[in-house]
Design a protein around this nucleic acid. Structure first.
Length: 211
DNA sequence: GCGACAG
DNA sequence: ATCTTGTCGC
């Protein structure tokens, strides 16, 4: 049995274990992870920020060898390892994790954000920059007759698709993602910074939304 | 069978 | 995701 078939079975088995209710008392700190690739290496970055002030509390990076090719629907196989190794380097705790990829907005309702959320047993939110599957209806994405994601539109037709990863409701996830988008930005600040750090770029300061 | 397909 | 400089435009 191929590694892919096993992964699909794992997704089908774990999908029903995702908690879609809010199970957090307050959201003070938010973490984000992203992985970029170069020369056969996976560079992962994790950033922890204060959800209210967008102050960076800690950021780390880790480099590992790429072990699996990218296959739509099975991105977890390629990115979970690198992401976990970066998260393991953090000394600072966090209330919610934002993931660059989908949660329940997935063919089997179990994307990378769900996988990380179930493994860590923590609240996670999936944020994708393009639509993997499903149909857009107003500001929602319908899949199998269910609303699995919220669409947040920015300037120039740019959109992000927010879905549940684990231990959070879609409404809370969507509102959180919105509140973390700084003025003039497309992505929630934690993810924007994680993306830059993973590419070893120097992130420039930005103007918080409430100013 | 054909096309679509997170990063 | 990555390969890649300058360039058009708000």
């Amino acid at each position: 049995m191929s590694r892919y078939t096993e992964a699909v079975k794992l997704q089908r088995r774990l999908a029903p274990t995702v908690v879609t209710r809010d199970s957090l008392k307050s959201i003070r700190t938010v973490c984000a992870v992203d992985v970029s690739y170069r020369e056969g290496l996976a560079n992962a970055a994790a950033v922890v920020m204060d959800a209210a002030t967008l102050e960076v509390l800690e950021h780390v990076t880790s480099t590992t060898k790429v072990k699996v090719p990218y296959v739509p629907g099975l991105m977890m196989l390629r990115e979970a390892g690198p992401a976990m190794s970066a998260l393991g380097l953090l000394k600072t705790g966090f209330d919610v994790l934002l993931v660059d990829g989908n949660g329940q907005l997935h063919p089997r309702r179990f994307g990378l954000a769900c996988y990380l959320g179930v493994m860590l047993d923590k609240p996670t939110v999936g944020v994708a920059k393009s639509l993997l599957c499903g149909t857009e209806k107003k500001d929602s994405v319908i899949l199998g007759g269910r609303t699995v994601a919220k669409v947040i539109s920015g300037r120039e037709g740019r959109k992000i698709f927010v879905s549940i990863g684990n231990k959070i409701s879609l409404g809370t996830a969507s509102r959180l993602a919105s509140s973390l988008i700084a003025r003039g930005q497309w992505l929630p600040e934690p993810l924007r910074l994680a993306d830059m750090y993973s590419k070893k770029r120097a992130p420039k300061r930005v103007v918080p939304k409430n100013l």
